[in-house]
Simulated assay, not measured.
Amino acid sequence: MADEHPIHRSISADELLSTAHTRSFCNILFPPDLVLDEADLSESRFERCLFRVPLIRGVDFSGSIFEDCRFAPTRFASCKLPGTRFTGCTLFDVEQKKGSSFAFCDLQAAEMTKCNFATCSFERCDLYNVHAVECSFRGVQFGHSSFTKALSRRSTLARASFDGCNFSFGDLSGLQLQNCQFLSCKFSEASFIDTDLSDAMLSACQLDRVEWDRAKLRNADLRGSRLSGLNLAVLADYAGLTVSESEQSGLLEGLGIAVQPD
C-alpha cells in the first residue's frame, strides 16, 4: 500500500531538464514557481508526486503514467495526454473544494482508475475512447468537449466507457455520446440536456432526478437502471429504448397512462 503522506523532494527547472531523460519521477514536488511550458515529458512515469504548478501549458504527456499523484487546482492548457494512465490520483483539492481544469487537451484513449476528478472541467477537449473505472466525476463539466472521431466528412463515431463512476451533479449537456457505455454509474441530479445517447448503454445506473430535456435515447439500453423522474415527453427521441420491466409502469404513468393489473 502506498504511503498516504510521502515526503516530497522539490525539483527545480534545471533539475527537471537534467533528469527528464530518465522519464521517471517518484515522490517529487513540482512547486508553484516551476515553469513546464512546452516540455516533452512523454512516456514518463510519475509516482506519488505532488503537483502545485497552477498552469501547465503545451506539455507533451503522451503515454505517461500517473500513479498515486496529487494535483493542487491545476489548469492543463493545450496539453497532449493521449494514452495516459491515471491510477489512484486526486485532482480535487479538499481544502479549496476545487478541481483541476483541462482546456483544449488531447485525452484520446486515456485511462483513469480510482481517481478523483470531482468538479473538474474539460473544455473543448478530445475525449474519444476514454476509459474510466471507479472514478469520481461529481460536479464535472464537459463544455464543448468531444467523445467522437471523424470517420469521413459525413460520419463520426463516439466511443467511451465508464464503469462504477460517479457523475452526480455533473453537466453532460450537449454531448455526443452515441454507442458509449456506462456500467453501474451514478448520475443523481446530472444534466443530459440536448445530449445524444442514441445506441448507448446505461446498465445498472442510478438516474434519479436527471435533467433529460431534448435528450436523445434512440435504441439506448437502460436495463437495470433506476429511472426515477424520467419523463419520456421531454425527450427528443426514444424510439427503440429498452428499459427493465420494473421501470415501465413509472414511464407510462409519466405520460399520463394508467397501468392496472389484469
Rank of each mutant, 00 (worst) to 15 (best):
L207C: 07
F192S: 01
D163S: 05
R9P: 01
S146Q: 11
G250W: 06
P82A: 05
D68S: 15
F169E: 05
E211A: 01
A220P: 09
S228I: 10
T242I: 08
Y128N: 11
A158Y: 01
S188N: 08
C105V: 11
S44C: 15
C180H: 07
L17S: 05
L235S: 00
C135N: 12
S228Q: 14
F122K: 05
F167G: 09
G254F: 00
L127E: 07
T87S: 03
R23Q: 14
D196I: 04
A233K: 01
E189V: 00
D199C: 10
A118Q: 15
R57L: 11
Q248L: 09
G99F: 11
S191A: 00
R223D: 02
D237I: 04
V259Y: 03
A77G: 04
D213R: 05
F71S: 00
S188Y: 13
R226F: 07
F142T: 05
A103M: 11
C125M: 09
D171G: 06
E95K: 14
A13N: 04
F61K: 11
C49L: 02
K149L: 10
F117I: 07
P73A: 02
A204Y: 14
F76M: 11
A2W: 11
S228M: 08
R57C: 10
H131D: 08
P54M: 03
K186G: 04
A204W: 14
V35N: 15
E211Q: 02
V140S: 09
F147Y: 13
R209M: 10
Q96W: 02
D126T: 13
L36Q: 03
G164L: 03
F142W: 10
P73R: 05
F51L: 06
E253V: 08
G256C: 02
A150C: 08
L177A: 03
V130Q: 03
D199R: 12
M112S: 12
S78I: 07
Q96P: 00
T22A: 12
A13T: 11
S225N: 10
N179C: 04
P73I: 04
F147S: 06
H21V: 11
S145G: 05
L207M: 15
L227C: 08
S24P: 00
M201V: 15
D221A: 04
R124L: 02
A103F: 08
N27P: 04
S62W: 06
F182D: 01
F61N: 11
R214F: 02
S12D: 04
F192Y: 06
S64F: 11
C105A: 10
E123F: 13
S188C: 01
Q178H: 08
C180S: 09
L34D: 02
E247D: 05
S203F: 11
